[in-house]
């Protein structure tokens, strides 16, 4: 798998290529277009979008929801088929986790937990597609159809911190929203200012509580990103360095990764439920 790349690239170039994004954004001179090198991509700064990870993310999310909807529309209570059973078992698994972890009333939590679990699971699972299959095809198409040399094409959305942080920051916004809604603005600020040491230690309390609060979304997003990025990087190192020995090595690492993929999706979902449950607790 690495052979095709290794002919014309060093291992370092190979790995950099695989870790780059297909970036569309505003060039420093003001016109919009694709970045043709990692340098160009970083020059674009914030006004750029990762077409590959964003596209895979949306495609996987849409595929999951449309498929579930299709199964749901044909679902029968008395005579479920195999596919319906499968989808229902996922639904019930998530529903049980929500009813255990979330003790308040909010009809949004269940659907959100289901979306997170299945969507993140699918995005993580892209990690198990051998690293050069789709990326290699895309690079070939880029080179021969669009004249785009070394076109990067990342297929695992959760190895992009934008993707994981995009979700965790959305959840952070919800945490603040529901905290203020259920504790009141005073209750919310009071929890930040008057815990854990009472009103005479307000600056110290804020120094503890604000980082604690900010740590939630950051750790949530970075945990997922870090796990998947590390996994992907190891696949790339195996592909780039081991020659033929990569086949058993890939197998071993992929088996291990089969555990990581659902575990990280589960952790992301559970933490979301727990954080939002805490946000619904009345102020104390």
């Amino acid at each position: 798998m690495a052979a095709a790349g290794a002919e014309s690239q060093t291992v370092q170039e190979y790995i950099v290529h695989h870790l780059s994004y297909l970036t569309f954004g505003r060039h420093p001179d003001g016109h919009w277009g694709f970045a043709h090198s990692p340098e160009e991509a970083s020059e674009m700064g914030f006004m750029a979008i990762h077409v590959d990870t964003m596209g895979w993310s949306i495609a996987l999310g849409a595929a999951f929801l449309l498929w579930f909807r299709r199964v749901g529309l044909r679902a029968s209570a008395s005579n479920p088929g195999a596919i319906q059973n499968f989808v229902e078992s996922i639904f019930e698994f998530v529903d049980n986790r929500v009813s255990e972890g979330f003790t308040h009333k909010n009809s949004l939590i269940g659907p959100m937990a289901l979306t997170i679990f299945v969507w993140v699971l699918l995005m993580n699972a892209m990690d198990l597609v051998p690293v050069d299959w789709i990326t290699g095809i895309a690079a070939w198409v880029g080179e021969h159809v669009f004249g785009f040399d070394h076109m990067p094409f990342k297929i695992v959305p959760t190895t992009d911190p934008n993707i994981t942080m995009g979700m965790s920051l959305s959840i952070f916004v919800l945490i603040i929203w529901y905290s203020i809604k259920h504790k009141g603005l005073g209750g919310f600020l009071g929890e930040l200012a008057f815990h854990p040491f009472g009103k005479w230690m307000v600056p110290f309390n804020l120094m503890i509580e604000i980082p604690t609060m900010l740590a939630k979304p950051i750790s949530l997003g970075l945990r997922l990103f870090g796990n998947l990025y590390a996994g992907e990087l190891l696949f790339l190192l195996i592909a780039g360095l081991l020659g033929l020995w990569q086949l058993p090595a890939h197998f071993v690492w992929a088996v291990f990764h089969i555990l990581v993929v659902p575990l990280q999706a589960f952790v992301f979902m559970m933490l979301t439920i727990v954080y939002l449950n805490a946000a619904h607790e009345p102020a104390h």
Binding site: T23, I49, L65, E88, G110, M112, G166
Partner: peptide, 29 residues
């Protein structure tokens, strides 16, 4: 490199959650 993708993903997340809440979850419930 944090860029517009983070906003795109937030929007996608919101839309997917809404869609799931409106069109998927009730079917199975």
């Amino acid at each position: 490199d944090i860029n517009l993708t983070i906003i795109g993903q937030s929007i996608a997340f919101a839309v997917f959650c809404w869609f799931c809440h409106r069109y998927v979850w009730p079917l199975f419930a």
